[in-house]
């Protein structure tokens, strides 16, 4: 018989067993004395009244959801349950799912929808790493880091800054970094300590308990309460085109630039050909 969990709750497996006993496939075990008897109410059928206090099914265990990005076609999809063999629904590529840890000296290629950890003391050279997230605490030389989500930097990380311009950078909470050269990236999120000249092309976010020193040039900035700052900031959101938009007029579409009407008229009309004047008095007949 199904045995309730803590606080009188039963799990999904017990409820399935109860339904099977209702169908007669599994004999009902004899309940011990004083034991509660719970009947699966999900099927909506109860054969005998519950003995003792009623059982409340408070929650159902749900499988784990994984948000994955295919490294072959960059298609974003979701998978539930255990990641065993994953096929991209778009390009049908069988994807590697495991997390990888790199210690020591290593060179090669890794492609996975999991995470890659370059641990402290590791030296990665002439390699290519494609993963969901890449956490760097070691040294990377002549290495292509291609995280599909973001690149995490921990204390001791050594990477080539000129290759990070299109990446989302996350400074971990345990990190304390001081950069000698400008950091150019797409977005920057700081959870730990960073001293640098940062130039994210999209957005910078300073989370609580973070510390930023230096210079920050960004079109957008979000600072949460609790962040410490001692820096020069230049935050200037991009301005939209100065087009007067009144109520009722649709906003201008972003696309090809508007063509001047005069230019259109000139293009549509055939070019005028000027014929030389004919002097009837001097023209000779056949």
């Amino acid at each position: 018989m199904p045995r309730p969990d803590h606080n009188g709750m039963i799990d999904g497996y017990s409820s399935v067993q109860a339904i099977r006993r209702l169908d007669g496939k599994t004999p009902r075990p004899k309940p011990p004395d004083g034991e509660l008897s719970a009947v699966a109410t999900s099927a909506g059928v109860s054969t005998e009244p519950a003995v003792g206090r009623p059982v409340n099914v408070a929650h159902t265990a749900l499988p784990t959801r994984h948000d994955l990005i295919c490294y072959a076609c960059n298609y974003r999809f979701m998978v539930t349950g255990r990641l065993d063999k994953v096929l991209c629904p778009k390009c049908k590529t069988q994807l590697e799912t495991g997390d990888k840890h790199i210690d020591g000296t290593w060179s090669g290629t890794i492609q996975t929808v999991g995470r890659v950890f370059i641990n402290s003391g590791a030296v990665v050279s002439s390699a290519r790493i494609v993963a969901l997230d890449i956490r760097v605490a070691g040294m990377c030389r002549s290495t292509r880091l291609e995280p599909t989500r973001h690149l995490e930097l921990d204390s001791g990380a050594q990477v080539e800054l000129d290759k990070l311009s299109k990446l989302k950078i996350v400074i971990l909470e345990s990190a304390s970094l001081c950069l000698d050269e400008p950091l150019r990236c797409r977005t920057l999120e700081v959870f730990g300590e960073l001293q640098a000249e940062a130039r994210p092309s999209e957005q910078a976010v300073l989370h609580p308990a973070s510390t930023f020193r230096g210079t920050l040039h960004s079109p957008r900035l979000i600072v949460y309460e609790g962040a410490a700052l001692k820096a020069y900031l230049h935050i200037s959101p991009p301005r939209a085109a100065a087009v007067p938009v009144t109520v009722g007029n649709p906003p201008p579409e972003v696309g090809e630039p508007p063509v001047d009407a005069a230019i259109l008229q000139e293009c549509d009309a055939p070019p005028a050909v000027e014929l030389p004047p004919v002097d009837l008095a001097t023209s000779e007949g056949p």
Binding site: Q203, T211, R213, R220, L221, I222, V223, Y224, E225, G226, A227, A228, L229, K230, A231, Y232, L233, H234, I235, S236, P237
Partner: peptide, 25 residues
């Protein structure tokens, strides 16, 4: 001592914010 900045702010200048109270140096 505390600072919050929302998305969309235009800001040019120096900032000195330290929730702990001591100087951020």
């Amino acid at each position: 001592r505390r600072l919050t900045v929302e998305d969309g702010v235009t800001f040019v200048g120096k900032v000195e914010v330290n929730p702990a109270g001591a100087g951020v140096g």
